[in-house]
Amino acid sequence: MMSERLAVKLPGLDLKNPIMNSSGAVFFGLEDKGYAIEETGALVTKTVTMSARAGNPQPWIINTPSGILNSVGLANPGIEAVVADILPAIHEKYKTLPVLASVAGETVGEYVALTERLTATKQVTAIEANLSCPNVDRGGMAFGVTAESAAEVIHAMRAATTLPIYAKMSPNVTDIKPIVKAVETAGADGIVLINTVVGMSLDLNTRQARLARGTGGMSGTSVHPIAVRFVYETAQTVSIPVIGVGGVSTVDDVLELMMAGASAVQIGTALAGNHQVMADIIRELPSALDKYGFSNVEEVTKTFKK
């Protein structure tokens, strides 16, 4: 059966297929924009912080010839609104669809408090620890660029919940291997990578940065080879599963990340241009498995031949 061919089992997550949105790509999945989230393996929420955040000064997002640069700055309504209103609405709309709640704190204590609040709702399937946002002054990527700080966050979160913890890591590092190994040792159940690559774009007429904050996170097809490399290096380093993300817009992009070592794949920027891209890829997966000689999607993971 097709459902059995596409199913993926991860720690705490039974996915009907390996496709999900990346954090922020569909906000909280409650707006009717035709993303076909109900057809995917899971919903990943917008990153939630302790207090509501308005985000960075506009403009937040600009197009470049290489992809999209964003500097949103974790805009979100804050944990109280998410717990009181948003999670119940998600549960009502999507019923049994697994929900990964993305969180980010300015301190280790905030990561713990967010974890405790979300765990208590019993409406979250897993927690994605955002250790990699490049667009905030405190927290985010600051925790994910060294093994010590990343491990400290995950260790503290692990003590605060029995839910699976997936650590979302940054590509803006010299060597990802010691960092993901430290995160695994600290108690993470899985790794998600990559987040955006720090970049910058200048207006030649004004001689100023096109983004109000100056730098931003680059996403889109140009970062896909970078994501493949990071997924491969991570999968060779840790024994916990990897969720790949970065520049995915086709079914072949999905299979490439899975061959490199991913067990599931998140899609972000491509949704802006094609709201149906996740549904399209899910529909195309069986034929792609046949084309490349796989009986089911789980067989694809780590089949790269060095």
Rank of each mutant, 00 (worst) to 15 (best):
7 A>N: 04
59 P>D: 11
297 V>C: 01
19 I>A: 12
91 H>K: 15
72 V>W: 09
120 A>T: 10
170 S>N: 05
67 G>L: 14
7 A>K: 11
33 K>F: 15
234 T>R: 02
108 V>G: 10
242 V>G: 00
273 G>L: 08
3 S>M: 10
216 G>P: 10
180 V>C: 05
52 A>R: 09
303 T>L: 11
227 A>D: 03
52 A>W: 05
7 A>L: 05
202 L>N: 07
37 I>M: 08
113 A>H: 07
254 V>G: 03
24 G>E: 14
237 T>S: 04
28 F>A: 06
121 T>S: 02
37 I>P: 01
279 A>R: 02
97 L>G: 01
98 P>Y: 15
62 I>G: 11
257 L>Q: 00
61 I>A: 15
155 H>P: 08
187 G>R: 01
108 V>N: 11
104 A>Y: 05
270 A>M: 10
76 N>C: 04
22 S>T: 14
202 L>R: 09
188 A>L: 03
30 L>M: 05
127 I>M: 13
285 L>I: 09
108 V>H: 13
181 K>I: 07
240 I>N: 03
61 I>T: 15
136 V>Q: 05
184 E>Q: 11
27 F>A: 15
12 G>W: 02
246 G>A: 06
84 A>L: 04
189 D>E: 08
22 S>P: 08
98 P>R: 15
247 G>N: 01
231 V>F: 00
33 K>P: 14
46 K>M: 04
229 R>G: 00
285 L>M: 13
106 E>F: 08
261 G>S: 00
254 V>L: 03
8 V>F: 07
13 L>K: 15
104 A>K: 04
247 G>I: 00
286 P>W: 06
12 G>K: 04
294 F>E: 14
128 E>D: 00
286 P>Q: 01
140 G>R: 08
172 N>I: 13
150 A>G: 08
203 D>L: 13
265 V>Q: 00
56 N>P: 13
175 D>F: 11
46 K>C: 03
166 Y>L: 12
64 T>D: 10
200 M>R: 06
238 V>Q: 02
283 R>P: 08
196 T>K: 12
102 S>H: 02
239 S>I: 03
273 G>W: 04
214 G>Q: 13
300 V>L: 12
32 D>Y: 02
111 Y>W: 06
256 E>Q: 06
34 G>I: 06
10 L>D: 12
110 E>D: 14
292 Y>A: 06
57 P>Q: 03
160 A>N: 07
22 S>W: 11
246 G>V: 06
208 Q>F: 11
237 T>F: 02
134 P>D: 04
293 G>A: 12
119 T>K: 12
59 P>H: 10
164 P>D: 12
292 Y>E: 10
242 V>D: 01
216 G>R: 14
156 A>R: 05
88 P>Y: 14
87 L>T: 00
26 V>C: 12
117 R>G: 08
31 E>F: 10
128 E>W: 00
139 G>L: 07
91 H>E: 09
73 G>I: 08
4 E>Q: 12
207 R>I: 06
120 A>K: 14
202 L>Y: 10
6 L>R: 06
297 V>I: 05
156 A>L: 06
57 P>E: 09
152 E>Y: 00
223 V>A: 09
234 T>P: 01
91 H>C: 10
161 T>Y: 10
51 S>F: 15
111 Y>N: 04
190 G>V: 05
248 V>G: 00
